[in-house]
């Protein structure tokens, strides 16, 4: 909120020729770059840059669920922790979970619960950690999109990747993927997440003011955009695994086996182990 004051109220978010403050058209995404497998310790990880958002996602598990009373004897829990670094926003954010991040963690957990094959891992937990390092609106979409790649990188069986994007309304125009200024001064924001293969909507939130017709157009924009983002997710995974395959191919050949093995040392009979000792 700290960056709010220096921007005049009558700011035009989109001009007569349909160009937005950052030069985009109404149906343009910010540039997105996804990289899979960026952390060593995590079972799976991904990094996403989405405009000025920088978000890391890590996945651990399936591992024993803690605390134990949360364990489900029939399936795995999918538990997400969305967290913003104190330095990720203009005015320092107090560290630790606040109400907003608790809610976002909950809706992201629920979005993934229906795509992970939870019944294969009873009593365990699949833990997803999303860390927002630099925020410029749309962090839950960026985080969810990255987490999806991290889950795949961790080898968690899923029905499909989940892809997320938001649309909203700025200066009276329905537009895709709002940035911070557009979110602060726009009329509405509607983040969604979809299972691209089936069209199932697994996350849907909205705040602001949209007519039903505007909502339809916002969803259309998001759905079209998620198709492209889905390709970026798949491409990140392909790059990760082709790099791993190449590494395996290029590994130095094992040392040559000596043509003549040294003769085995003589083994005195009394040193043979007794059967009882085995």
């Amino acid at each position: 909120m700290g960056d709010v004051e220096h921007i005049p109220k009558e700011l035009k978010l989109i001009d007569e020729s349909g160009v937005r403050l950052d030069g985009r058209r109404y149906d343009e995404l910010r540039p997105i770059r996804i990289e899979a497998g960026v952390l060593k310790k995590a079972d799976g990880s991904a990094y996403i840059e989405w405009g000025n958002n920088k978000v890391l996602a890590a996945v651990y598990g399936p591992r024993e669920a803690h605390p134990r009373h949360l364990q489900d004897p029939a399936k795995a829990l999918v538990q997400c922790r969305y967290n913003m670094a104190p330095f990720s926003v203009t005015e320092r954010k107090r560290p630790g979970p606040d109400r907003r991040s608790v809610e976002i963690s909950k809706v992201i957990s629920e979005a993934f619960a229906s795509v992970v094959f939870v019944e294969q891992f009873p009593r365990t937990s699949v833990d997803i950690f999303i860390e927002v390092l630099q925020a410029d609106a749309g962090t839950r979409c960026a985080g969810l999109t990255a987490a999806s790649v991290a889950l795949a990188d961790a080898g968690i069986p899923m029905r499909d990747l989940v892809t997320s994007c938001a649309s909203g309304k700025i200066g009276g125009v329905v537009a895709l993927d709002l940035n911070k200024d557009e979110d602060n001064f726009g009329e509405a924001d509607c983040p969604m997440a979809i299972v691209p293969r089936t069209g199932e909507i697994v996350l849907l939130q909205m705040d602001g003011h949209l007519t039903v017709d505007e909502f339809e157009r916002a969803m259309d924009l998001s759905i079209v955009a998620t198709k492209g983002i889905y390709e970026l997710q798949r491409d990140a995974l392909r790059r990760r695994y082709s790099a791993m395959a190449e590494q395996a191919m290029e590994a130095p050949p094992p040392p040559p086996i000596p043509s003549e093995l040294p003769p085995p040392p003589d083994m005195p009979e009394d040193e043979l182990p007794e059967v009882d000792d085995l």
């Binding site: 199932e200 602001g208 007519t211």
Partner: peptide
């Protein structure tokens, strides 16, 4: 429409 919230694990 002024606000929406989808919840639970289904779609």
């Amino acid at each position: 429409v002024r606000a929406m919230q989808k919840g639970l694990k289904g779609s």
